[in-house]
Amino acid sequence: MSGQDLVSDQGLRVDGRRANELRQIRVRMGVFGQSDGSAYLEQGNTKVLAAVYGPHQPRGGGRGGNRSGTGIINCQYSMAVFSFSAGERKKRPRGDRKTQETSLQLRRAIEAIVQVELYPRSQIDVFVEVLQSDGSDYCAAVNAATLALIDAGIPIKDYSVGCTATIASMGASEEVDSKDETGSGTGIVDANHMEECTGATTLTVVALPGAPGSNYESDTDNSGLVVVAQGTGARLHLSRLEGLRQRALQGCRDTRVILDQAVRFHLTTHDPHFI
């Protein structure tokens, strides 16, 4: 599949979305009773479960270890063995390099929103399990983790929202398309597994998008504090980075709106305290 096929001439992608449309997000919070907070998130076909335990005493490192006076965030990202949509099953759910690195990135994303100064000598565990992987697993994991933190009642600065923007790698002879529509960036948002695999470059961004109407939103090209950015895939020319970043940030903002709605719905309909 060449780069051009990601978006057809009518502006539609393989699954009928436009370039800047997200997949359907469905959320359920409070899935498990035993963990302090939990959330289940579906982004299209990517299904992710997150559980939060804490704050509690640090395990194992309690003696003589942590005297730094701030809390520790411990993250584990694990993919179920049957999670790959296409191809073979994974041999081990966690412990390999890729999942360990993703756990580290997840921790960075969570550390940005949790106020660790409020929890000295404590540990907050965030465990994410990917049940089905169909593109943007890491982003779905970050979103689910944020929701689980909210469900656990841990105060956070803002939603930590992840989104990907994918752009087809064009040949050297093609020019950079200088006219983006209304400054909203280039590339497609929230690619699924097939689109990610076509040899395109994916930029993954985790941002704190800020609530709509806050002073972040007024800045057209600098909204949202970006905490994690990752690129995968083929090479990307530097001139196209900015367009991609804007696309991804806009995707983060859109996702935040949906997540916020889901949280409010959960609190008003499910939680007896709020009725």
């Binding site: 035993q34 997150a50 395990r59 584990q76 759910p93 966690r94 565990d125 465990f127 399990e129």
Partner: peptide, 12 residues
Amino acid sequence: DCSANATPAFEG
């Protein structure tokens, strides 16, 4: 596979 979601003791 015992997921860490069940209890933190299942981590790693």
